[in-house]
């Protein structure tokens, strides 16, 4: 754990995961505060399929709105967005989504790196990046750019991750602010949300 307290100016969180991460998300969503002050953007590697059943699956776990991100859609607080299958999900300067169907990155589309990196350059210190379990090296570079742009970074503890390869890859490249077990993630996100609402009241 890092010494400093949870970031108070976090506006958006990008959560990236691959093999072994879906359950972590499914267990986290029901525990999220209903007064969520952040935008949560989830990018999961999955088999390219045409339907949006994953959004429905996640939506069933929380009363917060969960939807697949549409291109040009503004990113709003209190909402959970999911990267659509088979597109890279990018963040524009005006805090809207855009989609990209270019080459796969680390054999993946959506790529975690693409979302982490474009979000980092837009939100800068207002972004938190969380990397979960996976068997891929995607996400490590992206999380590093979150840190380089002043954002907050967290990685699922490899000891706790179902597949430790992805957290290990990221840890070999950078030192995150937090190492979290799956059980700690909801609390981490709620704290970020709480810190933001306190700060807004104070200012």
């Amino acid at each position: 754990m890092a010494e400093n307290g949870v970031g108070s100016g976090i506006e958006a969180v990008v959560i990236g995961g691959s093999a072994g991460s879906l359950n972590v998300i499914l267990n986290t969503l029901p525990l999220l505060t209903r007064q969520l002050k952040l935008s949560i953007i989830i990018v999961l590697h999955r088999k390219s399929s045409y339907d949006s059943s994953l959004a429905n699956l996640l939506g069933g776990k929380t009363t917060l709105p969960v939807k697949e991100a549409d291109e040009k859609e503004p990113i709003l607080p209190g909402k959970i967005y999911l990267a659509p299958a088979d597109y890279h999900l990018l963040i524009e300067k005006d805090k809207t989504f855009s989609l990209d169907y270019s080459e796969k990155i680390h054999y993946s589309r959506p790529s975690l790196d693409a979302t982490f990196q474009t979000a980092a350059e837009v939100y800068r210190s207002g972004l938190a990046g969380l990397l979960l379990s996976g068997a891929n090296s995607d996400g490590a570079e992206g999380l590093r750019s979150v840190k380089a742009n002043g954002g907050l970074t967290a990685i699922q503890d490899p000891e706790d991750a179902e597949v430790s390869y992805m957290p290990d890859q990221a840890l070999s490249k950078m030192k995150p602010d937090y190492l979290l077990s799956a059980k700690e993630i909801a609390g981490f996100l709620n704290d970020l949300s709480q810190a933001r609402s306190t700060r807004n009241k104070g200012s």
């Binding site: 990018l90 963040i91 524009e92 300067k93 855009s98 990209d100 270019s102 990196q117 474009t118």
Partner: peptide, 9 residues
């Protein structure tokens, strides 16, 4: 063109 994608490419 949308800038984020253009910038990446």
């Amino acid at each position: 063109y949308s800038k984020a994608s253009l910038k990446r490419r």
